[in-house]
Design a protein around this nucleic acid. Structure first.
Length: 692
DNA sequence: CACTGTCCCTAC
DNA sequence: TAAGGTAGGGACAGTG
């Protein structure tokens, strides 16, 4: 048994025997009315089965509830592996052609990408992508391999998998598994009495041995897989397979006792409280509420208060809690930049080496990495990256900053904006005083800490983040974490890879050395006619102009014909389109482009979102759905942007400049059409004029 | 003051 | 290392 699975001590003892239970109950009732604003009916449990832990006995209810929800430990079969994880789904995207240097560091030739999606430990359970774990496993093979070699490569891959599998001590107990493919998020339907699909991952030694044995087949991260991917049956996320998985969502918040006038630093300032709420996706109430405090804390209605004498105990209690509850998704406010790194760095300071075992890979330590993200769309943001294998971290602050333009992103103002609820800020200057007071002042602090854990969960539900992000992840085929931590281009690339694989195409590494191609001509903007118009003006608008152009004219990497090919191939005129910018593309009758297909899918998804929008009644729900369809629109537009991004993975200015040239042409044409038709000569009242 | 370049923002 | 695009307006600073 590893540390991560170590049993948490049985229900902690009542923290403060000095307070007789009766007195507690009385004071609780009093305070509940005027002080515990957040403990209103929205948070209080409704049924008997829920946790109302007014006395010691009820603590056992928590313990049993917790163990009921705790997932079974890994089988002993896995004990021999130094690191392992159980995945729900394996998918192998095997060839992307010449390697992308970014995606495949250190590899030169055509490459395979194995993507692994999903994690589970119990059959009916659900999972998300292998977040945190590198979502791509890189395998490279000798340079010079082309599309014709795909099947050969396939076989090599398969053989290698088998070999590795033989080497491992893991028995094969899965014969047939039906998988639900949702790309990023999946619902696993148990077809088999045995719950496990097993994949043992990343035995570091195997990397070395593979290199020695077969230099032409480098494996950067080794895998041992218990079933062959050909045995997987994947379903598109439709009908019953489009259901949302009941993720287990942990929302947490920490409080630190900072020194006066200083922002808390993990090198100096202790973690004094950690509040946790655990909710099943789709349910309105958390099924676990607790708070871990340093020093005693008076009881709180509906909350399991666990008090400890040392900070070390607090941290370890939290680690054990995480491992026991085994959440799929971890949320909070600014957790990525503050809470999570703070806990880890604090544990480092205190020398608690066994603390950062929080993920689903046994004995894998969580590390903190500094990252910066900068793009024109989202601006530059510095952040810390903490990978917790197998758990999605969803920072509501990040999501807010990406999705909404607000004047302030404090939890307080965001909650006020979306939930009409304030957070009753405890000013940071009095946190230390509250901590140094008595059990009652620490209780007050705990209530606020809990509220700070509660608000992100409310935001998550209210803004339908799980639904919207899962939708986006499904459509684009990237893990959810990418949606928060990366830009638009990875989404386009991911869709390209998916489509290319379907069609047995390889994507070249187009990023040439010194790609100095400059910029290209953009859209026409007609001159506006300024003035105050009393009568309404008719507006003309193209529906998704650029995507429509790409679809209509079949513009794609794989339909572009170079000038020399035009000469060589002597293509009949009726098979090609010549764009206003002078490029040639074959028509879809000859070969349908990948990009148009991707766009069709995106626009179909957008259509679905718009249909939902029509159904929606609640204004906020409407706003959220509107945001979703807008996000899909932006994704569709970024397909065009992707081709014009000269610093991206696969620039193709022939496509982007063709799109804009068609766009200009169409706008001119429309203007002419309208102005020619609606004239006084044609019997209309006025001459029409088309401007901005 | 006229003009230019930069930054920042928004529209599409 | 990763990063959708171009067009265009307004505020502001610097310069002759």
């Amino acid at each position: 048994m590893n540390n991560g699975g170590r049993k948490r001590p049985p229900p902690p003892p009542q923290p403060s025997p000095a307070n007789p239970p009766k007195h507690q109950a009385a004071s609780q009732e009093d305070e509940f009315v005027d002080e515990d604003v957040f403990l209103d009916e929205t948070l209080l449990p409704e049924d008997e089965d829920s946790l109302i832990l007014r006395d010691l006995d009820k603590r056992h209810a928590l313990a049993s509830r917790l163990s009921r929800w705790a997932r079974p430990p890994l089988s002993d079969d896995y004990a021999s592996a130094s690191r392992n994880v159980v995945f729900q789904q394996l998918e192998i995207d095997y060839v992307i052609g010449e390697s992308h240097r970014e995606l495949l560091p250190n590899s030169l030739g055509p490459a395979a990408i194995i993507r692994i999606f999903g994690v589970t430990r119990e059959g009916h359970s659900v999972c998300c992508n292998v977040h945190g774990f590198e979502p791509y496993f890189y395998i490279s093979c000798p340079p010079g391999m082309g599309p014709d070699d795909i099947s050969h490569f396939h076989q090599i891959l398969e053989r290698r998998m088998r070999e590795m599998n033989r080497n491992s001590k893991v028995p094969k107990f899965i014969r047939r598994i039906e998988m639900v493919q949702k790309r990023s998020i999946m619902y696993y339907q148990q077809q088999n009495s045995h719950p496990f699909l097993k994949i043992v991952v990343a035995l570091p030694t195997m990397v070395a041995s593979c290199r020695e044995k077969d230099a032409s087949f480098l494996i950067y991260l080794s895998l041992t897989i218990a079933l062959r991917y050909s045995e997987l049956i994947s379903h598109t996320p439709e009908a019953e397979f489009s259901k949302m998985a009941p993720f287990r969502i942990l929302s947490f918040d920490i409080e630190c006792a900072g020194r006066k006038g200083h922002f808390p630093e993990p090198g100096h300032d202790p973690v004094i409280q950690v509040a946790n709420l655990v909710t099943l996706q789709g349910e309105s109430q958390p099924f676990i509420r607790n708070v871990m405090t340093l020093k005693s804390c008076a009881p709180i209605v509906g909350v399991d208060v666990m008090s400890f004498d040392t900070e070390r105990e607090v941290l370890l209690a939290w680690r054990d809690f995480i491992n026991k509850v085994d959440p799929d998704i971890i949320i909070g406010y600014n957790i990525c930049k503050f809470d999570t790194p703070y806990l880890i760095e604090r544990a480092e300071t205190l020398g608690i080496s066994e603390f950062p075992i929080l993920g689903r890979i046994r004995n894998s330590r969580v590390r903190v990495k500094d990252t910066t993200f900068s793009s024109r769309q989202y601006g530059t943001r510095e952040s810390k990256e903490v990978t917790i294998e197998g758990r999605v971290q969803f920072d509501l602050l990040q999501a807010m900053q990406r999705d909404y333009k607000l004047s302030s992103y404090s939890l307080n103002s965001v909650s006020a904006h979306f939930l009409s609820e304030q957070k009753e800020d405890v000013h940071h200057s009095i946190i230390s005083d509250l901590q140094n007071g008595n059990a009652e002042t620490r209780r007050r602090l705990a209530v606020y800490c809990l509220k700070d854990a509660y608000l992100p969960q409310r935001l998550l539900d209210k803004l339908m983040y799980i639904y919207n992000y899962v939708e986006m992840a499904r459509v684009t085929g990237v893990p959810i974490s990418f949606l928060l931590s990366r830009g638009q281009s990875i989404k386009v690339l991911s869709q390209l890879l998916r489509k290319a694989k379907q069609k047995n195409l390889v994507i070249p590494n187009a990023k040439q050395a010194g790609s100095e191609q400059g910029t290209y001509e953009g859209a026409t903007v007609l001159e506006a006619k300024a003035g105050f118009y009393e009568k309404p003006i008719a507006t003309l608008d193209f529906a998704s102009l650029y995507p429509s152009i790409m679809m209509a004219y079949n513009l794609c990497y794989c339909t572009l014909v170079t000038p020399e090919d035009v000469r060589k191939l002597n293509l009949p005129l009726e098979c090609v389109n010549k764009t206003p910018s002078g490029e040639t593309f074959v028509k879809s009758s000859l070969q349908k482009g990948i990009l148009p297909e991707i766009l069709e899918e995106l626009l179909a998804a957008r259509k679905r979102a718009k249909a939902d929008l029509k159904e929606a009644k609640d204004p906020l729900e409407k706003a959220v759905l509107d945001g979703r369809q807008l996000a899909l629109k932006i994704s569709a537009n970024s397909v065009y942007g992707f081709t014009g991004a000269t610093v991206a993975q696969l620039p193709c200015l022939e496509i982007s400049s063709s799109v804009t040239s068609y766009g200009r042409q169409m706008i001119e044409h429309t203007k002419k059409l309208v102005e020619d038709k609606f004239t006084t000569l044609g019997g209309y009242e006025h001459n029409a004029e088309v401007c901005i």
